[in-house]
Simulated assay, not measured.
Amino acid sequence: MLINPMSGGVGNRAGDEAKAILSEYDVDADVRILEGDGFADTIDEAISERPDALFVLAGDGTARSVATLAGQKDVLVATLPGGTMNMLPKALYGTGDWKKALRRTLEQGEPRKVAGGAIGEEYFYCAAIMGAPALWAPAREAIRSGKLGEAWSKARLAFRRAFSGRIRFSLDGKTEEKAEALVLITPLISKAFNESDPGLEAAAMKTADTGQALRLAANALFNDWRDDEAVDTRRTRKVKLWGRSRIPAVIDGETVPVGKEAEVRFVPHAFTALALSPQAVEDAG
């Protein structure tokens, strides 16, 4: 089990707390702390030893990176919630509490193949928001955390930029289109997933006037924006995007640099998670 105590959702006592929980179960556990200059080496060493399962308790970016590396080496991995948004852990374990997730995994965990998407070398397993409305993600998270002052400040910044320019995109090499944003949703959380035709759910945000923009902004903060009439959804395996300036992007809750052009591809089997079954996640949630 790899732990980054400096991550916002972890803390300095996490190592001892994890050891205490693991001692209650019939497992041979090795807990290692991620720190300083040896951060990357500790991860590489753990994966190279090919354990029966690799647990990681760290921020969203680190958990995503470890999942990607583990997938390349065919190592079973459990990404516990230790970040800010915890999109991937919540989808796999039905909770944002790492202790509950650890216990649930030890008691109910089973191997689950996880599909995803990739933007260059950056992989995502829940969703990627491409375009200026990606700036709404921090505002929405602040609302969920009850930080209304911070939410208002971030929402003002987001709205100033959210509808100031459009991105161009093409799905599976087809006709060029324009939109305020394109959201790519993986099978793990897609409501429109089809096993017979797997791929990413592409939701294009298109508004015709300020009124639609305001409504879409409200839905982005408080409701399921995919139900908005200004959102068009389709399935895709390959996406090309480009814009006049750098495209804002949030993948699995983390802001990442993209540039003025980007290509996204569907990855049918990105890694294998030790996680709850979909029904157990739904029951837990």
Rank of each mutant, 00 (worst) to 15 (best):
I247Q: 02
A270E: 00
P51R: 05
G82E: 01
A142P: 05
R168P: 10
R13D: 15
A132D: 14
L182K: 04
E229S: 15
A262H: 03
K100C: 11
L92T: 01
L57A: 00
L102P: 03
E263A: 14
A40F: 13
W98L: 04
R144T: 13
F266R: 02
G117I: 03
A29S: 10
L216Y: 01
P248V: 02
D37I: 11
R246C: 12
D74V: 12
R140A: 09
T272N: 03
V77N: 04
A280R: 11
R265E: 12
E150N: 11
A14E: 00
A151V: 09
G96N: 12
A20P: 07
A275R: 01
R244S: 14
I185T: 14
R160K: 14
L148Y: 12
K99W: 05
L92M: 06
G199H: 03
R168D: 11
V56N: 02
D97Q: 07
T175E: 15
K174A: 15
L157N: 14
G146S: 08
A155S: 14
G96L: 11
K154H: 08
G146K: 05
L34F: 04
F169C: 07
I3N: 03
D74W: 07
K100D: 13
E229Y: 10
F169W: 08
A181M: 08
A179Q: 08
V31R: 04
R226P: 02
A202N: 06
K113Q: 12
E261N: 11
A115K: 01
L148S: 11
K73T: 01
K113L: 10
C126R: 00
L34N: 02
W152S: 15
R64G: 09
G199E: 04
L171H: 05
M205Y: 07
G36Q: 06
L214F: 12
G15F: 12
A202C: 11
G61I: 05
K174H: 14
N194G: 09
A78C: 01
T255W: 04
P268R: 00
F222K: 07
A118E: 06
G149W: 06
G71F: 09
M6K: 13
A53S: 11
N223V: 10
I247T: 02
I119D: 10
A20M: 07
T95P: 03
F193L: 10
G243D: 01
R144L: 14
A220P: 07
P187Y: 01
P198L: 06
V56Q: 02
E122C: 13
G165R: 13
K238R: 14
I21P: 08
L148N: 10
T68M: 07
K178V: 12
S153C: 09
W136L: 15
P187E: 00
D28I: 06
Y93Q: 02
K154D: 11
F159D: 05
L184V: 10
G253E: 04
